[in-house]
Design a protein around this nucleic acid. Structure first.
Lengths: 186, 186
DNA sequence: ATAAAGATACCGTCTGGACGGTTTGTCAAG
DNA sequence: CTTGACAAACCGTCCAGACGGTATCTTTAT
């Protein structure tokens, strides 16, 4: 009842909790699982509490998008920093990050994002912006057909992970990574 | 009122009409646009009529899935029949069919399907079955890393078309096709 | 050949529940 | 004592599906 009133107020932590729960629910129950009721309840917060942090559902999806893209960006940049060769550097980072995703833990969040991306015109355009900026930024080093091809293949693998449609063992994945990296240098 | 009762009964045609309308609606209004009311009304059929053909909403999605996969299969087989070389034949057909999709007309149906695939565990497993059967069937000719890679890249391009995230002109697409086909022979 | 007897293909309304969002209230920290 | 961080009840809408019909087609019995 007044439970949450008594506990220490940690708005930032609650906000993070809400995002995590939303990602988890989308994994367990599909898109339909992301309802304000379900998210708030699973996060141990009332619906009003959720709507205090995110004024409406779209804002919640937006927050999730920001969160995940920020994380993705950070990993890409970290991977790029480790790569001494300029040509195809972005593409190799893309490959590494995509294949480093642990299907059991990381994919769920992205699964939801994909669905939201395709379903929500608003998020779709934000994603397009991200892709557009990146492709301009790395036009000098990563615009070759080989690089594009490699990145598209990453997306395909990622999609396969998402819908668990292909059974790829570690060996097959390693083989793919090797070939893709070769393409990125071409 | 009794209008539709008087018209000739054409169950198969009505069924097809319902599927077409469902695909169209998902294109125009997103997944949320696929409601029993909207589909039935746009197809010029009552809700009861729709539920006569498809006992519930999942059955409607199932029907859509069957319809589209059947069409996809037919095109794949037609493309394979035109290819004299055994090695990588399936993969090349896959490439052709994926790139032959007219983003303006064919994608809408697939867009909805993708969303449903990711969102609906039931359809997801049916898709997995299809992929599994195909990959067994063409294990001899299309199991090389190059072939797999090419097909994954197709999926990536198809995803990009779906969310209109990349601006690919005809030239870039042609270049991709060329490279992918080279990979299929490797 | 034909009429009765289903079977099939629909129609139109109703309901119960879910869901996004609002409002009002309450507690606690600064 | 004001403001931020919640709680809890509530509202309007939308939607899936149930239900009870009616009209047309098909089969069967005569």
């Amino acid at each position: 009842m007044t439970e949450a009133h008594r506990r220490k107020k940690q708005p930032e932590q609650v906000r993070q909790q809400l995002l995590e729960v939303a990602a988890r629910l989308s994994h367990e129950q599909g898109v339909a699982g992301i309802t304000l009721d379900a998210v708030s309840q699973a996060a141990g917060v009332s619906k009003g509490g959720l709507l205090h942090h995110f004024p409406n559902k779209l804002a919640l999806l937006d927050g999730l998008f920001d969160d995940l893209v920020t994380r993705f960006n950070r990993e890409i940049e970290a991977a790029m920093a480790r790569d001494p060769v300029a040509k195809g550097r972005f593409t190799r980072a893309y490959i590494d990050v995509c294949f480093a995703l642990d299907p059991a833990t990381d994919v769920p969040g992205w699964r939801m994002l994909t669905i939201a991306l395709i379903a929500e015109p608003h998020l779709k355009s934000r994603w397009r912006d991200w892709v557009g900026r990146r492709s301009v930024e790395f036009a000098e080093t990563d615009a070759s057909t080989g690089c594009m091809l490699a990145r598209f293949a990453c997306d395909g693998v990622w999609l396969a992970d998402l819908m668990q449609s292909h059974e790829l063992d570690a060996e097959a994945r390693a083989g793919l990574v090797e070939n893709l990296k070769a393409l990125s240098a071409q």
